[in-house]
Simulated assay, not measured.
Amino acid sequence: MKIRVHRPLREEVYDALRRAIVQGELSPGNRVVETELAGRLGISRTPVREALRKLEAEGFLSKGPGSSLLVSAMSPEEVEETFRIRAVLEGLAARLAAERAAPEGIALLEGILNRSETTLDGEAPERLLEWNTRFHDGLNVLSGSAQLQQLLQAIHDKILRYRRITLEVGRARKAWLQEHRAILQAIKDRDPARAERLIVEHVLRKKETVLAHLKSRGETRRNETP
């Protein structure tokens, strides 16, 4: 885990820790100790403490025994609820995009999808996650609703590390690209109902993939150990 110093240290520490959690370098249940982090990074404890508070407020960390902090895991119930909320919100975004999106905006989204397809084979999950995120963010922008984009960003931040799971299997990678292509086509066809239905189905399929992964690994909050 590395930090740079051209921004406030608390922001650099926050970004480095958040990235480590999202990419799986820090797994659910791992302890995060302020003094150890400060020593490893060669900085004072204050920016580390501020970064940890922000990560805890956002749900990436949770209280453990005593005053310790642990990398949080979502319970199956939280995954279920969060993905269902995401499905509803992204469904609305897709519907609005099909109704409102300008041709140049649709062309930009298609460019993202084309780039995703050319980098499918051999790419690391982190790179694929980046393209997947760009597509969904681009679609949300096409909705033309700033408030909807803010709501979706909060949801995406919460489940980002779990979205990575859906891209780790080659078959899954091809499936989500095909689904993205179908969603884009519905938007191009100006078919709001189809665009909404397809993305809701897409998100709920991802939910099932994540739930199956958590079940297989026992990666739930109730099973965390200090």
Rank of each mutant, 00 (worst) to 15 (best):
G111P: 09
E36G: 11
K54T: 15
P103W: 10
R40A: 15
E50G: 08
R49P: 10
A98D: 05
V33M: 12
P76I: 12
E81P: 03
L108H: 03
K54F: 02
A51I: 12
A102P: 02
A38E: 03
L89W: 11
P28A: 05
L120Y: 00
S75L: 10
R84P: 00
G64D: 04
L55T: 05
T82W: 05
R84T: 02
E36C: 04
E25I: 12
S27Y: 11
L41Q: 07
A51C: 13
A87H: 04
E104C: 03
V79Y: 00
E126Y: 10
A57R: 14
A94Y: 01
G29Y: 00
R84D: 07
G122W: 08
G42P: 14
G39L: 02
L26E: 00
L113C: 09
A73F: 04
F60S: 03
P47N: 14
E126N: 00
R40L: 14
T46F: 06
E56T: 04
R49E: 08
G39H: 06
G105I: 10
E58I: 09
E126Q: 01
S27V: 12
L61H: 01
G42V: 09
A93T: 13
L92A: 13
E78G: 02
K54S: 08
A87E: 07
G42W: 09
E78A: 06
R115D: 01
T35G: 06
G111E: 11
L52G: 01
E110G: 13
A124L: 12
A97F: 13
L96G: 03
E126F: 02
F83A: 01
A107D: 08
A87V: 10
N114K: 15
E77T: 05
A51W: 07
R84Y: 04
I85W: 12
P28L: 00
G66D: 11
